[in-house]
Design a protein around this nucleic acid. Structure first.
Lengths: 225, 225
DNA sequence: CGCATAAGTTTGACGACTCAAACTCTAGGT
DNA sequence: ACCTAGAGTTTGAGTCGTCAAACTTATGCG
């Protein structure tokens, strides 16, 4: 029930790793890396999560959250994403810095403040990165989208979500005019170089690696050049 | 420099106790009580503050902050009071609950967020309780005011500050129409009972103990009945 | 197959913060 | 001057989260 701040961080990290993993479970090494902690520390914390019925784990195997653990992780994610939305929409901070700020604030938000914040922001469904904000009851509606890297040359699309939270990635995207909601068109793809060239509407052409483009999600628009 | 959350709490408590004390120093017992900790714990933490040049203390004597400690305490107080102002002005929470909420949030606010918050709120000089908000450079302008308990029968005054942060006290004041900025008149004083009777403008007469009234600060207005 | 390497686990230790309980000092009254 | 009640201090121990280093298991290469 009363998760410590550290436990909250583990739950959130495991949830996100689990979501991204093929096998739907988080490896100990990745958990440790995500939290900036040694593998031994992660092992012992996971042991504690298991004792609290928040996660399941068997020796040398992967980690996965229980229903209870998932519920807790979604609550933390909700706090995180609402705080990010607040920092951008209300305080006018740049989206490239809000992730780290929210990382600290998310643990200090009580249910009462959270609800007031939610109301103040107009109960938003998505944060500034396009990530869905879990609702108070734990419901989470992922938006339909595909990686920008899968677009073909000439395809037009709308940018709906940016998975990368790293400040420099976000600053690059903002500087290029590639923000959530923007429309764009693929000008060219150079598979050999692993690079695609993109033109945001009303901006100039930018090149980015297909691996970077894979972390940008888009929804294709009907128009085809 | 990098004060831990616990250290921040000690600094703030010592600052406030020192301000209220006649001898301008905080006793170990009161520090312990303010933090909900045993006397032994307070002694050892103060020892740590002294080692960090944040406070001065000699065995069996009082504790007082150094210049460095005072500067740090004012920074924490600034965060606390700006957060309170935000919770009331922007999120619309009741002033009787914001103290405890701010107590948690104040440690998670970075300088960048703090400044954005300050700008968003219009760089306020006072928080919802009428407490002055220290400025970023540490300047603190106390408002001139006297305890309501020192008014005489028939005196009129404007309520400028409430020192008590306890939720039930604040709920009583709000319910009575006694909020910061309200004008009022002393209807009667009954020294024997230790009670004074107050009529807020546009409200009905309320009784309160002179000890409670001493924690409410007012500025007398020229009009005399 | 066998074994080296990567991944995971265990162990012992530490720093931060806390308590309970034993101990010491200070101050006030007679 | 004394002596005691109350305030303050010290000590020993415990919890939480962490690390480094020794150890164990799983796996994939040759």
């Amino acid at each position: 029930m009363l998760a410590t701040e550290t436990v909250e961080n583990y739950l959130k990290a495991i949830y996100l790793l689990q979501r991204d993993a093929a096998a739907d479970e988080a490896s100990m090494g990745k958990i440790a890396a995500a939290l900036g902690v040694t593998a031994g520390t992660a092992t012992s914390m996971v042991k504690k999560l298991v004792a609290a019925r928040l996660a399941r784990h068997e020796r040398f195997g992967g980690v996965r959250l229980t229903t209870k653990g998932t519920r807790a992780a979604l609550d933390i994610l909700r706090r995180h994403r609402l705080v990010e939305t607040f920092l951008v929409d209300t305080l006018g901070l740049d989206w490239s810095v809000v992730h780290d700020e929210a990382e600290r604030l998310e643990h200090a938000i009580s249910p009462m403040v959270l609800d007031a914040l939610d109301r103040h922001l107009g109960r938003p469904a998505f944060d500034p990165h396009g990530d869905p904000i879990p609702r108070a009851d734990g419901a989470l509606q992922e938006s339909e989208a595909m990686p920008m890297s899968e677009l073909g040359s000439g395809d037009a699309a709308r940018l709906v979500r940016v998975l990368d939270q790293r400040g420099d990635s976000l600053r690059f995207l903002r500087a290029s005019g590639l923000k959530v909601g923007a429309t764009l068109r693929v000008v060219a793809i150079e598979p050999g170089a692993g690079v695609m060239r993109i033109r945001p509407d009303g901006g100039s052409i930018v090149s980015m690696s297909t691996t970077a483009a894979a972390r940008v999600l888009v929804r294709p628009t009907r128009s085809r050049h």
